[in-house]
């Protein structure tokens, strides 16, 4: 059940309007998650402003995906608070309720409904009543059809609309998942590594799409492709060992001594330039911070 701060239930059909009077739509406060004693998130604090586009970077195992798991209800944190706007306590909700209040997510590993057509995949993701009887008797309205067509055009899968999703290539699946995200019209989009497996041109289009979404929606992007991050980022948050290490514009973060120390301190020589997508100038090794893995356990 969805309740607001006063404890009064909000039914799913109510369009929950998060209270963003302070300009913040997502509050993550003092969140800790541990797996068998290993702290994947450690007293993490993060505030996402309404309409902002935020990039989240950090080495493998820094806890980025875990953070998204916490926000979307897949993992319950050991301690801490996660609020949507001021009044909606996300920790009280389960995954589907969180999705319905307006937090959408694209997974690191693209997951679409393989046995359904691309069209059906998007149809299922459309915002609206998710109840059983509506699903059984409801029909698509003309408006909804138009919306689906529009999304198909946006993600470039109009011709593949009636393919089974399993036939799609990896990159197409990424797009489809983004399309599903769009269809849900969420207030907050959590996007985990959207451009992995895309060509340079497609990466560019994704960047455009995400930037255009910001403003109306709040977008949180996790990405290892630094060129991509640079091209879209206004604010960047660096995660390290489960907590925020630095926050600011790309150049601020890059010049932050802590960040440099953590990323370049040990094995700065490693340069993964081969990962670099075409169309983006290859810069110094410092750009590719993902090269230094600080996974522990």
């Amino acid at each position: 059940m969805i309740v607001d701060k006063a404890g009064t239930p909000i039914t799913a059909t109510d369009n929950v309007q998060p209270d963003t009077r302070h300009g913040v739509i997502l509050y993550v406060e003092d969140v800790s998650v541990s797996f068998d004693g290993f702290k994947a998130l450690n007293d993490l604090n993060l505030y996402i402003n309404d309409g902002e586009l935020r990039c989240l970077i950090g080495a493998n195992g820094a806890g980025k995906t875990t953070l998204m798991d916490v926000i979307t209800g897949k993992i319950r944190p050991d301690t801490g608070k996660v609020n949507f706007g001021q009044q909606v306590d996300l920790l009280q909700l389960d995954e589907s309720e969180i999705a319905r209040v307006g937090i959408g997510r694209k997974f690191q590993k693209p997951t679409v409904f393989e046995a359904l057509s691309v069209y059906k995949n998007i149809e299922l993701s459309l915002a609206g009543d998710k109840g059983i009887w509506t699903s059984l008797f409801g029909k698509l309205t003309g408006e909804q059809r138009d919306r689906i067509d529009e999304i198909l055009r946006t993600i470039g899968l109009t011709n593949e609309a009636f393919y089974m999703a399993e036939r799609l290539s990896h990159g197409q699946k990424q797009w489809l998942e983004i399309g599903m995200l769009l269809a849900a019209e969420p207030r907050v989009l959590l996007v985990d590594e959207p451009v992995a497996g895309m060509t340079g041109q497609e990466t560019e289009r994704t960047a455009e799409l995400l930037t255009s979404l910001a403003g109306e929606h709040s977008v949180v992007v996790v990405e290892h492709d630094m060129a991509f991050v640079r091209s879209i980022a206004r604010t960047v948050t660096v995660l390290h060992q489960g907590s925020v290490l630095a926050e600011g514009s790309m150049s601020e973060v890059q010049s932050n001594p802590e960040v440099i120390k953590v990323y370049l301190g040990e094995d700065s020589g490693e340069d993964s330039g081969d990962d670099n997508s075409e169309g983006y100038p290859s810069e110094s090794g410092e750009e590719y911070i993902e090269a230094s893995s600080s996974k522990e356990g």
Partner: peptide, 30 residues
Amino acid sequence: IVKSKLGAIITATRDAESRVRFVGYKPEYY
């Protein structure tokens, strides 16, 4: 039933139950 949207949802549940949840449905009730 299977031709309806509900049918699509249960098929989706069969293949990727947790994903259905993140789309906003409650697969358990379906």
